[in-house]
């Protein structure tokens, strides 16, 4: 498994401090966070060598003072002697639904940012970005069952942010029954972002993912993990308590670290394989890393959908 550490922040450019989850944690206000993340991302995106390459052109509009000169379509000027600006986001009325895991395990975090904080920032940022794209946004939170539902609507951004803000990862979660519950609700097809730590047998995701596909939705699965979960950094004798089941296990981590990592790597790989096989994106999101990669993948996915109408199938895991 390629180290996720290659996806370090700083490669986007200035403004990326808004994408650092630690910084975002200190902001506190979720809307502000979302706005800052999105604008910072977009700002960085313009400076990025990848700019314009992975985002498809949508339409022209007349130039207005203040528009970014790099967006001026000079070919169109040559043809028309008029200044036109390329629009990369088209008003497509896509439905974007966030499925946010609010189970207890999401509350884990060895640093300043817990998985749930990260997932909240991500959900909020994606929602904000979605609205900026002109799409409709909605959210559904779950632990062992669906807790909160905000249907997709162009006017529901604030409600979505509010729902994210007030959600707490304080209940036991069971991903399988929760997803079944999600699937039982007839949502609108569109883009779906599942934000969870995915402590489930990968095969259990096959059915709900297939169901979403059959509905015509594209799915991005953000596999949120803390670096401590990835590394098992503890020393000496410890007793680990399962945050979901409260089971305890005394152990010596140093003895088990290698084996644990292998197990986790295998799990992540298998998760990616299963999700890919059902046409979903699997994005491993380390909570210690900036949110830009996650947002980038969102845009890619949306762009594919805009282009093909059916969504993108490639897996990045």
């Amino acid at each position: 498994m390629p180290s996720h550490h290659a996806w370090s922040h700083g490669r986007i450019g200035p403004g990326s401090q808004f994408l650092d989850p630690v910084v975002l944690q200190r902001i506190g206000n979720l809307e502000l966070i979302a706005r800052g993340v999105v604008e910072g991302f977009l700002h960085g995106l313009h400076r990025s060598p990848f700019f314009g390459q992975s985002v498809d052109f949508a339409e022209h509009r007349p130039y207005t003072p203040g528009d970014d000169l790099r967006r001026v379509d000079w070919k169109a000027f040559a043809r028309t002697d008029r200044y036109y600006v390329k629009e990369f986001e088209a008003e497509t009325n896509t439905n974007f639904t966030v499925l946010l895991d609010t189970s207890r395990s999401m509350a884990f975090g060895e640093g300043e940012v817990s998985k749930f904080d990260y997932g909240s920032f991500l959900a909020a940022s994606l929602s904000f970005l979605t609205r900026k794209q002109g799409d409709r946004v909605g959210i559904l939170t779950f632990d062992s069952e669906v807790r909160d539902v905000v249907p997709c609507s162009a006017r529901h951004l604030e409600l979505v942010l509010l729902t994210i803000d007030r959600s707490q990862p304080d209940r036991r979660g069971e991903l399988g029954p929760a997803l079944r519950d999600v699937m039982n609700r007839k949502g609108k097809r569109g883009l779906v972002a599942l934000i969870s730590d995915l402590y489930i047998d990968p095969e259990e995701l096959r059915s709900p993912m297939n169901q979403l596909r059959e509905m015509g939705s594209d799915v991005m699965v953000f596999h949120v993990l803390d670096s401590a979960e990835l590394d098992l950094p503890y020393k000496g004798k410890v007793t680990l308590e399962d945050m979901e089941t409260k089971e305890v296990l005394p152990m010596a981590p140093e003895e088990l670290r290698e084996e644990y990592r292998k197990s986790l790597t295998t799990h992540v790989a298998e998760m990616g394989r299963v999700l890919t096989s059902v046409g979903a994106d699997h994005i491993l999101a380390d909570t210690s890393q900036p949110l830009d990669q996650a947002l980038f993948h969102y845009l890619l996915a949306r762009g594919d959908r805009m282009r093909t109408g059916t969504g993108r199938w490639a897996s990045l895991s």
Binding site: F108, Y199, E241, D242, M243, P250, L256, Y260
Partner: peptide
Amino acid sequence: RRYQGKLIEFPSLMFLRQLPVQSI
């Protein structure tokens, strides 16, 4: 006495349970 060491909350013991943890 079962030497327990420091108690740490961990998201899931799903993978650890599968490992052959020797008894202290």
